[in-house]
């Protein structure tokens, strides 16, 4: 059974002249790592806001079609109910952080879920270490740098260990090595705890390798939906202008030149290097 399922979902913001998403029908399975990408302004963030009920309960506007997340109908369940199942990391961390210390911000969600005090302490420490901000725990979130704030925002959602984690460009302010580490943490939680991950990203070079499923949106609609290797090889994906990883690009260019390479499309530099080693018969 899918953990997220939408049927002909169409939504217009209050005062909007046209729908921001239209006719979106998708299924995301339990335990999947799903990646949503597409041109800026195509409706990715709007779709994320539907997953925990911010749309329509907070943003109002007009929502048509059906949407069920963790078996619950969004229209019939208030945000506080959905928050028990779905965690959302906002695109702009400043919109999410409010407490006077990092530790309190990370603990806030757990306190609201009524988690016992000792367990809160344990989970807060665990997640602060995981995201590399244990040393910042006493600092005020609004005094931190953009990258540090993003870590706090991610930590506060991780701490709740929700069934579904929705992350909207969660590492845009982080340096590449830190971003890579955070994605690895998210991937490991996805595999170990079976948390379903929905990630909105433009930087597919960092993230495509983790995805089981890619959804490409354009102008409010879902235009491609399927297996990453297939989607990233399609001419449509390139034409819409999504950032195909360079390793995947190089593979396709060499294939076009008639080079014999295995048929498994690489999504990362490691995979591409291995294919080349095979073709060149080197053993590094």
């Amino acid at each position: 059974m899918p953990v997220i399922e939408t049927k002909n979902l169409t939504y217009t913001y209050p005062g909007g002249t046209k729908p921001s998403i239209s006719d979106v029908s998708i299924k995301i399975k339990k335990g999947e790592f799903a990646l949503i990408t597409g041109p800026s302004g195509c409706g990715k963030t709007t779709l994320c806001r539907c997953f925990n009920g911010l749309i329509p309960h907070f943003y109002q506007g007009e929502l048509k079609g059906e949407i069920k997340v963790t078996g619950l109908n969004i229209l019939e369940n208030p945000i506080y109910e959905m928050a028990k199942h779905v965690g959302l990391v906002f695109q702009n961390p400043e919109n999410q952080l409010f407490a006077l210390s990092v530790e309190k911000d990370v603990a806030f969600g757990l306190e609201n879920l009524g988690v016992p005090r000792e367990e809160i302490r344990k989970r807060v420490n665990w997640t602060l270490n995981l995201t590399g901000i244990y040393d910042l725990r006493e600092r005020a979130p609004h005094e931190l740098s953009g990258g540090q704030q993003q870590r706090v925002a991610i930590a506060s959602i991780l701490a709740m260990q929700p069934e579904v984690m929705v992350l909207d460009e969660p590492t845009s302010f982080l340096d590449p090595l830190s971003a890579k580490k955070i994605f690895k943490v998210i991937y490991e939680l996805n595999k170990k705890l079976g948390i379903t991950v929905v990630l909105v990203e433009h930087r597919l070079d960092l993230t495509a390798r983790y995805a089981d499923h890619i959804i490409v949106m354009d102008d409010g609609k879902v235009v491609l939906d399927g297996e990453p290797r297939e989607i990233l090889s399609s001419e449509e994906a390139r034409l819409i202008g999504i950032g195909i990883p360079k390793a995947t690009r190089l593979y396709h260019i060499l294939k076009k030149d008639g080079v014999k390479l295995s048929n498994t499309v690489p999504l990362s530099s490691d995979e591409m290097a291995n294919l080349l080693k095979e073709a060149l018969k080197v053993h590094d």
Binding site: A247, L250, S269, D270, A273, V282
Partner: peptide
């Protein structure tokens, strides 16, 4: 990524 690919084939 391109640099990474080249780095992995030192020989």
């Amino acid at each position: 990524q391109i640099a990474q690919i080249f780095m992995q084939m030192p020989s």
